[in-house]
Amino acid sequence: MKELREANGGLSQAALGEAVGVTRQTIIAIEQGRYSPSLETSFRIARLFGVGLEDVFGWEGD
């Protein structure tokens, strides 16, 4: 997500958070892998960057 922010004119964490309806601290937690966002927020982030969900988020499960 950090790479996508930087590729989109260096969008700040606060601006991204405001655009998708979460706080800057939540964006930081998502980027650090400490918080898994809701499906709605995930879609909002992906749509904001104009990419698919799996281009932003991955899942390392079994």
């Binding site: 937690a29 918080y35 966002p37």
Partner: peptide
């Protein structure tokens, strides 16, 4: 501004 903002999903 932060005081007016509602809780987000994580909060």
């Amino acid at each position: 501004d932060e005081a007016r903002a509602p809780l987000d999903e994580r909060e």
